[in-house]
Write a protein that binds this DNA or RNA. Structure first.
Length: 122
DNA sequence: ACCTTGACGGTTC
DNA sequence: GGAACCGCCAAGG
């Protein structure tokens, strides 16, 4: 049977949106919230990312590591396990991380409007 | 039904 | 820069 009923209402939209972030780019929590049709709910984005099943979602992995805060920083305590994991995943994509910070000017995802209309199913 | 918790963000100083 | 303050609201206890 389908497990979609078990997923919290907004998580689908958030995870779906996060999957659109291309390799080598990052997006802010608030940016994802806006694109997902949930303006002002950046915190919900963070919360939902922590709820992604280990097995992935709808058969795909969600690139949670590409989501950082509006200051361009990784939102985990410096040098904590999650921090280090995220930093490594980002660097694997050639994203420059210095002191937990990333230059949004260089690496922030700038989605194309038409692309969004074509990709988002809600 | 009430209270607390957040992988946040904008404003202000 | 950065720190303090407040607004936000779904979830979970």
């Amino acid at each position: 049977m389908s497990n979609t009923k078990l997923i919290k209402p907004h998580y689908d939209q958030i995870w779906q949106t996060v999957q659109l972030i291309p390799t080598g780019k990052v997006a802010c929590y608030g940016q994802i919230a806006d694109l997902a049709g949930l303006p002002g709910r950046a915190r919900l984005v963070g919360k939902s990312l922590g709820q992604i099943p280990n097995s992935g979602w709808q058969g795909k992995l969600v690139p949670w590591h590409r989501v950082i805060n509006s200051q361009g920083k990784i939102s985990f305590p410096i040098n904590s396990p999650f921090f280090l994991t995220q930093k490594e995943l980002l660097q694997d994509e050639d994203i420059v991380v210095i002191g937990g910070k990333i230059k949004l000017k260089d690496f922030q995802w700038q989605p194309d409007f038409n692309e969004l209309l074509f990709s988002l199913k809600f």
